[in-house]
Amino acid sequence: MMLIPCPFCGHRNESEFTYGGPVKPDRPDPNATSDEDWVEYLTTVPNPFGPVQERWWHARGCGTWLTIWRDTRTHDIVEGPSDAE
């Protein structure tokens, strides 16, 4: 079980949240990037052995979207949300 820090509600049980996926790099301009980099952007999901930045939605709560850094080895939230939207 994880307690996820919501900027509005404070720490809440993970069951109140919906996973929004890892934060992806900015979308490159498809006309200015190589095919290789474009395919990499489209198909590779960040999946590090360690901290990953990801989005969560406080769906059964206040409705806020937030971004955290979660360590995939321990489930520790190593950096809380700096955003409140």
Binding site: C9, R12, S15, E16, R60, C62
Partner: peptide, 25 residues
């Protein structure tokens, strides 16, 4: 419901969306 309902965390004037038996409540 996973809320901490102790007075310090959920005082008399508290109100919050949460879940109850898996549903938004």
């Amino acid at each position: 419901c996973p809320l901490d309902l102790h007075e310090a965390a959920f005082p008399e004037d508290a109100v919050s969306f949460t879940e109850f038996f898996g549903q938004t409540a």
